[in-house]
């Protein structure tokens, strides 16, 4: 399971101020904390600072990579900001994100190719927006994968985001995500997946319970990456347990390591 630490996001409390004032220590601490908790990638997002994103995003990348030996998941729909951030990034970055929308696809693809980055691909297109059913999402996913492959992106660099939405306003939204993952995984066994999960529990109590149960179900369907707070011990425990149960953790090495370091709960 690929863990992307979500905490360096200017829509979270305190981060906007830290980025504005270029408080490197604040950012470094978030990077170190998440890396120690098990993050494989560190997400950087400063979308709320729209006027200075082009300067702020590369600053975030540099600051993170000075503190930890991890690649970044560079999170922005703005090609100029992405390009500036990719230029200073060390190692293989993950770009978040592309869609099948024409304008977005054409703007982001050259960056993926130029930097050999991984790419998070949302199952959205111009015709359907965010499709309300699994069939359409699967179809858009297939089309996106075919297009990316044709444009020279290796299958292992593609991370499909099935679009997690609340079950509180549409009871089928959890099932739609599970079916989407499965439908795409069946056709393209080597493609990866990546998504945030917390949307699923919007409007309901005890959200952590729903979020962590949902991630286990998604892993069963084929999810192998998630954008989460790695400091969330319950979530990380469920991930380690599910990996062991699904035989994604040979000899349960990681599960036992997590147990000995005292993080399982």
């Amino acid at each position: 399971m690929l863990i992307v630490g979500e905490k360096i996001n200017s829509s979270l409390k305190g981060v906007t101020e830290a980025v504005k004032s270029r408080d490197a220590e604040f950012v470094r601490n978030l990077a170190i904390m998440q890396t120690e908790a098990g993050a494989d990638y560190i997400d950087v997002n400063c979308g709320t600072l729209i006027d200075e994103e082009v300067e702020a995003l590369p600053w975030l990348v540099k600051t993170v990579q000075e503190a930890v030996d991890r690649p970044c998941c560079i999170d922005s729909p703005n090609p100029a900001a992405l390009s500036a951030a990719l230029r200073v990034h060390k190692g293989k970055a993950l770009i978040n994100s592309i869609t099948a929308e024409k304008e977005r696809y054409d703007a982001i693809l050259p960056l993926v190719r130029e930097y050999g980055a991984g790419i998070v691909a949302l199952v959205m297109d111009d015709e359907h927006g965010m499709p309300k059913d699994a069939g359409t999402r699967i179809e858009i996913g297939w089309r996106l994968i075919e297009r990316l492959l044709k444009d020279g992106v290796p299958i292992g660099d593609i991370y499909i985001d099935p679009l997690v939405q609340p079950i509180s306003t549409n009871g089928n939204m959890g099932v739609i995500v599970l079916e989407t993952i499965k439908g795409i995984k069946d056709a393209y066994p080597d493609v990866h997946f990546m998504c945030g999960l917390s949307n699923v529990s919007f409007g309901l109590p005890k959200r952590a319970l729903l979020n962590s149960t949902f991630i286990a179900l998604c892993m069963m369907a084929g999810l192998d990456g998630a954008i989460i707070n790695p400091g969330n011990r319950r979530m990380m425990s469920v991930i380690r347990a599910a990996e062991a149960l699904l035989n994604k953790d040979k000899y349960t090495v990681n599960y036992l390591k997590a147990y000995r370091s005292g993080v399982l709960e």
């Binding site: 609340p166 509180s168 306003t169 009871g171 919007f202 409007g203 309901l204 109590p205």
Partner: peptide, 10 residues
């Protein structure tokens, strides 16, 4: 007041 949730409101 947090006594009911979104699906109940719906």
């Amino acid at each position: 007041n947090g006594e009911i949730f979104v699906p109940e409101m719906l």
